[in-house]
């Protein structure tokens, strides 16, 4: 294993990041996000996006159950009819409805800013679009970008007017080193947030592999929605981006047609010498497919949602298609 200088393209990454932030949330995207919220309202007639029954029993509208009276209970909840019939005190319990907090965890590690367009751009757009929908449902939205650690960009807050504030803050996100899902989600769990929907927007390329991803996600106590940022070159690696070329420029003519190459991990700096033969490429694709299948299997077992967004496509359009098909439950 050869350690290479991971900061090889640091200057190029900075310029790319600045360029990506400048066009992160343009007017067209914000209008598209607004339409997405309308679509979401249409397909969710029962109310809120995060419509969910609470485990708390309280003063709701729908009767749920009885329980014996104990000292200290609210006397207004005593069902006097039952008392007259049975001579014993029982409380009427009603289902209590509450809003569903949305926790957005976009991946802003160094790898998210490498290519052009960067995955971070697509990830942040997807997060903002989901936030727009959630804020429109009067749910609270919190944003916690992560890389090798997790930051609190926006604590859970609600209100339609928060969208532009949230967008403004998201444009100021800085790259955060490598991808470390375990550390980041451990920090997220330590925040002690009440149960909500945790949306992880990432490529999930943790150096620890699928096992590290599963371990990190399994520790999350919230409902999970995994938004996987993918691009075609993830499965067909040719041509990779030359280290000496300007970062963000992906030109088929500039890539190798074959032969011996050295691929360098932009985060860890690890390098591998590769002979680009058809057999090697086939094995690469097989490894990538195994990763995706493992991630999908985990999502099924965790009853989590899994969205695959093409970072080179229109993010809002892909989300609109999702919502038109109804709530995504894997």
């Amino acid at each position: 294993m050869i350690e290479a200088n991971a900061a090889l393209a640091g200057g190029s990454q900075l310029s790319a990041r600045l360029s990506a932030r400048a066009d992160l949330f343009d007017t067209a995207f914000l209008e598209a996000a607004e339409r997405l919220r309308l679509v979401a309202q249409r397909v969710a007639p029962r109310g809120r996006f995060a419509d969910q029954r609470s485990r708390d029993r309280g003063a709701g509208l729908e009767f749920q159950d009885y329980r014996p009276y104990v000292a200290g209970d609210d006397l207004r909840a005593i069902d006097w009819t039952v008392y007259r019939r049975l001579g014993r005190l029982f409380l009427r319990l009603f289902e209590e409805h509450e809003d569903l907090p949305l926790y957005l965890l976009p991946d802003v590690s160094r790898s998210a800013w490498l290519e052009r367009p960067p995955r971070a751009r697509a990830g942040l757009r997807a997060a903002l679009a989901l936030a727009a929908v959630s804020l429109g449902q009067h749910d609270s939205v919190g944003v916690f970008p992560f890389g090798d650690d997790l930051e609190v960009l926006q604590r859970p807050t609600s209100g339609k007017g928060r969208l532009m504030q949230l967008a403004s803050r998201m444009t100021k996100i800085e790259p955060m080193g490598g991808t470390d899902l375990r550390t980041s989600l451990k920090r997220f769990r330590a925040l002690g947030l009440r149960e909500g929907l945790c949306v992880v927007v990432s490529d999930f390329f943790d150096p620890g592999g699928l096992a590290a991803v599963e371990e990190a996600l399994r520790a999350v106590r919230h409902k999970l929605l995994l938004v996987q940022l993918v691009r075609k070159s993830d499965r067909d690696p040719r041509p990779p981006q030359r280290a000496t070329a300007r970062v963000g420029q992906t030109s088929p003519a500039a890539g190798p047609r074959g032969g011996e190459v050295r691929v360098i991990d932009c985060e860890s700096g690890q390098a591998h010498d590769v002979a680009l033969t058809p057999a090697v490429l086939a094995r690469y694709r097989a490894a990538y497919d195994r990763f995706n299948e493992g991630l999908a299997a985990f999502a099924r077992s965790r009853r989590a949602g899994l969205l695959a967004l093409d970072v080179e496509g229109d993010i809002v359009a892909q989300l609109a298609t999702l919502f038109e098909n109804g709530r995504r439950v894997v």
């Binding site: 290479a4 090889l8 393209a9 790898s111 490498l114 290519e115 995955r119 490529d203 390329f205 150096p207 592999g209 993830d234 690696p237 990779p240 981006q241 030359r242 280290a243 000496t244 970062v247 890539g255 190798p256 032969g259 011996e260 190459v261 050295r262 691929v263 360098i264 991990d265 932009c266 985060e267 860890s268 690890q270 390098a271 591998h272 010498d273 590769v274 002979a275 033969t277 057999a279 090697v280 490429l281 094995r283 690469y284 097989a286 490894a287 990538y288 195994r290 990763f291």
Partner: peptide
């Protein structure tokens, strides 16, 4: 050993798996 062209990639996770069976000379 040969002199390789160097390329930055998002991850070398899958290259590692591929190279386990076919390492460069």
């Amino acid at each position: 050993r040969v002199r390789h062209d160097e390329y930055l990639v998002v991850t070398t996770l899958f290259w590692q798996s591929a190279l386990e069976e076919a390492r460069a000379r």
